[in-house]
Structure formats: C-alpha cells, structure tokens
C-alpha cells in the first residue's frame, strides 16, 4: 500500500510543477505591464515603479523569478491581495470553510437522493418509473445551474417567501467564527434561532450545487446496478431464496458502489466549477465568489493564488479517491 501511495505521489509531481507554472505565468501573460497591473488604477511614479520592479524581482531572469515564486510557495507565501492587502493564503483559509460546507451539503444531498433513484430505476428497468427517473436525471445533468438557482429564488424566496435570497445567515446574528462552518458555529453559540437561519440559507444553494452531481450519481448507480444484477452471484443469492431487499440492498449494491464511489470523488472538480456559479448567485461568501470577484476587480495576486490552491486541492482529493478505489476494490488492491 505504501509503495502504491508513493508511486501515485510521484506521478503527481509533474502535474504539480505544471500547475505552479500555470499560476506563475498567469500574471505574466496578462496584457500589460505587471507592475502597472498590480498598482491598479492609481498608477505609480517612475521611482516607485523601479523600486517595485526590484522588489518583485521582475528584472531577474525568468527562471530565477519562478524559483523565487516556488520558494515563497513552500513557505506559504502566495502574495497579498491588492484590494484588501491581506495575504492571499489567509483570505483563502477564511473563505474556504464556507465553500466546503456548501460542497459537503450538496454532495450529501446528491448521494441521498441520487443513489436510491438510481437503484429504483435499475430495479424497475424498462418500466415507466425507470424512464421518469432517467429523463429527470438527464434534465438535471443538462441544467444550466445559474438559471436553476434564479428559478428557485423566484419560486421559494419571491413567491412563497420561504427561504432567504442570499448570504450564509441573517444579519440579525453575529456568530463567532470558531470552525468557520456556520452550521457548527451556530450550534456552539447560544443565539436562539441562529442554527435555523443558517439552515434556511443553505437549502437553495445546496439544491442548486447538488443537482448535477445528483444526476451523474443516479445515472451511474443505475448502470452499475444493471451490470451487477446480471451477475451469477446475484442469481445464486436469489436462488438461495434471499429476500429481494437483501439481494439488491446487500449483494448487488455493495459491488455496484465501487464505480459509483469513484464518480462521487471525481465530482470534486465539478463541484468547484459549480461553486463559482452557485456562490455568485446566492452571494455565498466562499472561494468561488471570491475568485469571480477578484477577476472583476483585477485583483490578480488573488486569482493567481486561488487558482493554485484550488488546483492543488483537486489534485489531492483525486489522489485520495484513487487510493480509496484501490482499498475498496480487491481486484486492484491485489494486482498492485
């Protein structure tokens, strides 16, 4: 197992270097002079310009600049935001829990609804229920989620007035950020009603972000189940007289889950892309909205740092999924 982990880590090194190169060249590829870009609209005096050129090392050869950049990275220095002057890493860390909270809820929603939907469709294969579930799933998969979010706002916030339109919690509450996860922090605080407010703010974004993963999981579960239901051991289990529930719920599902878990893991990148849109619609103060806002504010160090952080996180999660796949799938575990 350790050898497998090391091998996979080794394969990641070129990708990691490539990712750092991408984010390093991002600022240099932008049209215009990097110092003037960093200075923003105020501009700089020629003396200050030269000072900054030296300070940022733009006079050095490009490979040396890259090595300096890498060195800073490993010390956790991703530069500072032009707008807020805060270190990029620190901003990322304060906003990241909001994105994780939303992402985890969306994934839970997708699994809780998508898995049973896929199983039902497979068991009722060819029946009306199967067609209904699969057509709905394909519609979910085709959903422009930014529009889906607006529709839900029209319906639930506008017409019915059930849910709030934006943010993580009502302005009435001030919650001390202990963990950064609003659901936990509100429970830790003594404010009555704060937890409910946090939950009501989470519902619509969760549905919106979870829609596409839900559709993917439902489709994948159905096809994995169909494959497994044809296998000999399922027929044997049935022949032994086991109940339908036991055959499907235990014998078949356990094997069908292997590809499904991989798919769930691979949705992390999709989730980040979705978070950009979902957070923008619901003014959710997470990493996705931060990135979009920074692109518009021309806060390029933030875009550079955020890009790198997100790519590294996606890489790490994919690695973990890869290893877990090896753990749960005996075929892979034993063949190294």
């Amino acid at each position: 197992m350790l050898r497998l982990i090391l091998k996979k880590l080794g394969l990641l090194i070129p990708t990691f270097i490539g990712v750092t190169l991408t984010s390093f060249f991002f600022i240099r590829l932008l049209p215009g002079d990097p110092i003037l870009l960093l200075a923003g609209e105020r501009g700089v005096s020629p003396e200050r310009y030269n000072e900054l050129m030296i300070q940022f090392g733009y006079n050095d050869p490009i490979w040396q600049q890259y090595l300096t950049y890498l060195g800073n990275l490993f010390q956790g220095d991703l530069g500072a935001s032009i707008v807020t002057k805060q270190p990029v890493l620190q901003e990322f860390m304060t906003l990241f829990p909001a994105t994780v909270e939303l992402g985890v809820c969306a994934m839970l929603f997708a699994v809780i609804v998508g898995l049973p939907a896929g199983i039902i469709a497979a068991v009722k294969r060819g029946k009306t229920l199967d067609h209904t579930v699969m057509t709905t799933a394909l519609a979910g998969y085709s959903m422009p989620i930014f529009w889906w979010g607006l529709l839900l706002i029209i319906l639930f916030s506008g017409m019915l007035g059930w849910t709030p339109v934006s943010g993580r919690i009502s302005f009435m509450y001030w919650i001390e950020p202990v963990t950064g996860f609003m659901l936990i922090d509100t429970l830790l605080s003594d404010e009555p009603g704060a937890f409910g407010s946090a939950v009501s703010h989470l519902i619509l974004p969760t549905i919106v972000l979870g829609t596409i993963p839900l559709a993917v999981i439902a489709r994948q579960t159905r096809s994995a189940m169909l494959e497994v239901l044809d296998e000999d051991y399922v027929r044997t289990a049935r022949a032994k007289g086991l109940s339908n529930f036991r055959v499907i719920g235990i014998h078949a599902l356990r094997n069908a889950l292997i590809p499904v878990i991989t798919i769930i893991g691979l949705q992390i990148g999709v989730l980040f892309a979705g978070a950009i849109l979902t957070e923008s619609i619901f003014s959710w103060p997470g990493v996705g909205k931060w990135m979009v806002d920074s692109i518009f504010r021309r806060d390029y160090p933030v875009v550079q740092g955020g890009l790198l952080m997100i790519a590294v996180i996606v890489m790490i999660v994919n690695l973990i999924v890869d290893l877990m796949y090896g753990l749960i799938n005996p075929k892979i575990r034993h063949t190294e």
Binding site: G18, V19, T22, L30, G269, I295, V303, I310, V314, M315
Partner: peptide, 23 residues
C-alpha cells in the same frame, strides 16, 4: 502531462482565467 495539468483545474475556473487573460 500537459493534459493532466489542464484537468487539474476545474473547467469553468480555468476558462474564466483564460478569458481574463484574453479579454
């Protein structure tokens, strides 16, 4: 490896950043 690098970024984010560079 270059394809791996492209895939390491969430697609919409990379597209956004590319558009930020290109205009």
């Amino acid at each position: 490896r270059i394809m791996d690098i492209i895939l390491a970024f969430p697609s919409l984010l990379l597209a956004l950043v590319l558009v930020a560079i290109l205009g």
